[in-house]
Design a protein around this nucleic acid. Structure first.
Length: 242
DNA sequence: TGGACGTAAATGGGCGTGGT
DNA sequence: ACCACGCCCATTTACGTCCA
């Protein structure tokens, strides 16, 4: 066993050498972090993750398929490429919203946290920042996609954030839009029905916020040549027409 | 229940590269 | 030339799942 393996040699340098184990650990962490990001970004991986564990190899496979689909000219007739990209983005936002919804439900019901709680506010702010970080590099250029953080901006845009309570808080949306409270898995969370989510995607013009996501299932499956439509069954069942 | 199997993480070592 | 560092690969270890 060489000295390198225990600790990298120290001679004649200012900086203390870093253990090879530590370096390798960091490297593995970087790899895993990127794989996780892919798992949260690639629609099919995101869908499968929600129903079970996803192997690294699967994430990579789905990413390859996803990129092939995006770069393929073989889009369904009558659908614009940008339109489908927007659908993919919506799919991601859907998953993100779903997680946030569950988290908020947990915080408010299980943890008994109030919206005026600073910790509650910090968590939402964190989610907001993460939301931007994850989505912008991939979908930013489209420029017209809804950002989940816009849900939260409805809180932060008002300085009296602390005056809000659960019944007049964040998850405000109009009819036909993505629902924060209608999941079969989570009980209802009160909301203001008159505040609409700022959704401006092209696909939205075709109908509700969710319908593109449902439509995406078939398109995406066709793109990647998979026949496992039941991969998305959870979403279909859960978010059938609002 | 225990062995087979698969996956992920940890570890050890070689090699290339860039800075001094 | 020497050294720190990063990358890659092979092997070992830990852990979870499946099946007889």
């Amino acid at each position: 066993m060489s000295s390198k393996t225990k600790e990298r040699k120290v001679k004649g340098r200012k900086k203390a050498p870093v253990s090879h184990k530590v370096i390798e650990k960091r490297r593995r962490d970087r790899i895993n972090q990127c794989l996780n990001e892919l798992g949260k970004t690639v629609p099919m991986a995101l869908a499968k993750q929600s129903s079970g564990k996803l192997e690294k190899a699967e994430i990579l496979e789905m990413t390859v398929q996803y990129l092939r689909a995006l770069h393929s000219g073989d889009f369904p007739r009558g659908r614009e490429k940008g339109e489908l990209l927007a659908e993919f983005a919506n799919y991601f936002h859907f998953g993100y919203h779903e997680c946030m919804k569950n988290l908020v439900h947990y915080l408010t019901t299980v943890e008994r946290m109030e919206t005026k709680d600073t910790k509650y506010a910090r968590i939402l702010t964190f989610l907001q920042s993460k939301s931007r970080f994850v989505t912008e590099p991939m979908f930013g250029p489209l420029g017209v996609l809804p950002d989940p953080s816009e849900f939260l901006c409805q809180i932060h845009s008002t300085t009296d954030f602390q005056s809000h309570n659960l019944s007049d808080s964040v998850f405000q949306q109009g009819p036909g839009h993505f629902s924060w409270h209608s999941s079969s898995r989570t009980p209802a969370i009160p909301y203001l029905p008159n505040a609409a989510v700022p959704v401006t995607t092209p696909v939205q013009q075709l109908g509700s916020y969710l319908s593109p996501v449902q439509g995406l299932d078939n398109h995406y499956i066709n793109f990647v040549g998979h026949s496992h439509a039941n991969t998305f069954s959870m979403h279909n069942a859960q978010h059938a027409p609002l």
